[in-house]
Design a protein around this nucleic acid. Structure first.
Lengths: 147, 147
DNA sequence: AGGATATAGTTGCAAGTGCAATCAAATTTG
DNA sequence: CAAATTTGATTGCACTTGCAACTATATCCT
């Protein structure tokens, strides 16, 4: 079996760690939200980013960027959340091409409830495993990767 | 707009960083492999983990675990790689329920070529942004998350 | 031994996704 | 100002995925 030129051991651990830690964390958080609130993590993210917009509303394209999904993907996620009663769509008056997603009051309630599960999950599956310093080092490294 | 109870600032940066850094890195590595070698990152991972098995072969279930995919998902990825000529399937003699995925010589060649692109990508999009110490801190934090 | 249970793997199916094409509205440009 | 281009968003389509059901083989247990 031929040997493949590779990364050094620490680089390898960092890179493999990105894949595994992300997959494991994402999987658990998704599972818990579905079990306790009937929404996926992807849907929860849409609610979160909508809530962070002005008056709990945000343009579709901005929401797609924030939620790390394609525009077509977002259109359908929002459709689904509208069908569930958590979002409304509102045409944009200044730019008639545009559409806002707007949290309904039912959406606010759902978000607040689901966020308890979510935050508990992040603490349990991520923060509880790390010291404050490690958390800071992790945040630092991840942000440098994004530049 | 109501305020949602949340994580502290550092925790938030670490958690958001996991999502964004993973998405950005995965996206770039996938794009480069597709452009230069016509295989997805997911397929590349299957080739890598197969190559690491004995004689470039590995049981389907072990491969599914290593490649972070469901067994049904793996069955189809392997089907696709077999169709492309990079893998063969071999029945397991000791356990007739089992199947091995085995790298073909064309698969070895593909893997070796693709790994150059992959490693270059990991260096360029990840390691080049980090000092050796930051890489180590990152690896450390990610591994602790997995425990 | 042999029936019950567990394990390896595949398949049908439904759901989610992105790309390319499309439509409508806004903006640029000649 | 009208034509050309750009931008915001949605839709058709193909592809990937996981779950549940299923088949085949292996193991457990009395």
């Amino acid at each position: 079996m031929e040997e493949i030129a590779w990364l050094n051991e620490v680089e390898m651990r960092a890179w493999r760690g990105m894949l595994s830690a992300h997959a494991q964390l994402y999987g658990k958080l998704d599972e818990e939200l579905v079990a306790e609130h009937g929404i996926t993590f992807a849907e929860y993210e849409v609610l979160v980013h909508t809530s962070e917009g002005e008056d709990g509303s945000i343009r579709m394209s901005a929401l797609a960027d924030a939620a790390l999904v394609s525009r077509s993907g977002l259109t359908r996620r929002v459709q689904h959340l509208v069908a569930q009663g958590y979002l409304e769509r509102r045409r944009c008056k200044e730019d008639k091409r545009g559409t806002f997603a707007v949290l309904t009051s039912s959406g606010w309630t759902k978000l607040i409830e689901a966020s308890k599960t979510h935050i508990r999950g992040v603490r349990e599956h991520m923060m509880s495993k790390l010291t404050a310093q490690e958390t800071e080092e992790l945040a630092n490294a991840l942000e440098k990767m994004l530049k």
